[in-house]
């Protein structure tokens, strides 16, 4: 049991980090902070994937030419390369939206925008 927990403790850290990111996304009203939370959330997920690919005593998956070299699994790395780029794309679009919102509403606090919108609705 103890061995088991030691072997998976790394996951738990990653889980805590993920949840911190998610917490920021849900609890903060500032739109930029929400985006930051999203970035932290996603980066933590990347950590999770990369730690999956690790092999004890392995090396980076670049062929060394020696026989019997133990390589870490390249597939999670490939996936995360894609995911990083997708994450940045999301951030960029989100920031563009935030800028427009600031332009139109004069604020980027969610609760202020919400009260603004309800006023608009009741008009």
């Amino acid at each position: 049991m103890i061995h088991g927990i030691l072997g998976i403790w790394n996951y738990w850290i990653v889980i805590i980090l993920m949840m911190t990111g998610l917490f920021i996304v849900i609890s903060r009203h500032n739109l930029v902070k929400k985006m930051v939370g999203l970035t932290i959330f996603q980066t933590s997920v990347f950590l999770f994937y990369i730690s999956l690919g690790k092999v004890q005593g392995g090396t980076a998956p670049i062929l060394t030419g020696y026989k019997n070299t133990l390589y870490s699994n390249p597939l999670p790395h490939v996936l995360i390369l894609t995911a990083i780029v997708v994450g940045v794309a999301t951030t960029a679009l989100g920031l563009a939206l935030i800028l427009r919102i600031k332009n139109e509403y004069g604020t980027i606090e969610e609760n202020e925008i919400a009260s603004f919108n309800t006023e608009e609705n009741s008009k």
Partner: peptide
């Protein structure tokens, strides 16, 4: 805009 941002997030 806010609808889109919520959708995105």
């Amino acid at each position: 805009l806010t609808a889109a941002f919520n959708y995105l997030l």
